[in-house]
C-alpha cells in the first residue's frame, strides 16, 4: 500500500491529497469531469487498500468549489466506505467546507451529511 496518494488538480478535476500516516484525506478544488468514474477510480482503490489496515484517526476534508452530479455520486461512494469503517470502530470525522456566499451549497452539504452516521462538521472557507 502506498503511504500517500497525490493527484494534481486542474480546472475540471480536484486535487487529491491522501496521507495514510496522518489519516488526513483531502479533496479540494473543482470536480466537473466528463466521467467521474475515471477520476475517482484510483481514489476508491487507494481507500479500499487503506481500510485493510486503517489509521486510528481519519479526517476527510472536502473543499469543493464546484462539483457536478456525477462527482457528487463518487463523493457519496467515499462517504459510504468511510461509514462502513466507522461502524467497524475506526475514529472518523468529515469536514466539509463551502464558500461563505454559497448558501445553497451549505444546504446541500448539510442534507448529504445527514444521510450518514459519521461525525461531521460544516465549515466556511
Amino acid at each position: 500500500m502506498i503511504d500517500k496518494l497525490y493527484l494534481k488538480g486542474s480546472e475540471e478535476v480536484p486535487e487529491i491529497n491522501f496521507n495514510a500516516t496522518t489519516g488526513k484525506l483531502e479533496i479540494s478544488g473543482r470536480s466537473i469531469p466528463e466521467n467521474a468514474n475515471i477520476v475517482f477510480s484510483p481514489v476508491l482503490s487507494w481507500l479500499n487498500l487503506f481500510f485493510e489496515k486503517p489509521n486510528t484517526e481519519i479526517t476527510l476534508v472536502l473543499k469543493l468549489e464546484y462539483i457536478n452530479s456525477s462527482s457528487t455520486k463518487k463523493i457519496i461512494e467515499i462517504l459510504l466506505l468511510l461509514e462502513k469503517q466507522f461502524e467497524k470502530g475506526s475514529k472518523i470525522k468529515v469536514e466539509w467546507f463551502y464558500k461563505t456566499i454559497d448558501l445553497s451549497m451549505e444546504k446541500k452539504i448539510s442534507e448529504l451529511l445527514g444521510l450518514f452516521k459519521i461525525p461531521s462538521e460544516i465549515k466556511v472557507y
Binding site: P33, E34, N35, A36, N37, I38, S69, S70, T72, K73, K74, I76, E77, L80, L112, L115
Partner: peptide, 13 residues
C-alpha cells in the same frame, strides 16, 4: 437517488 446505485460506465448519475 444520491445514496442508491452507482454511476454507469459513461459516468451518468
Amino acid at each position: 437517488k444520491v445514496r442508491s446505485g452507482t454511476l454507469d460506465k459513461n459516468g451518468n448519475a
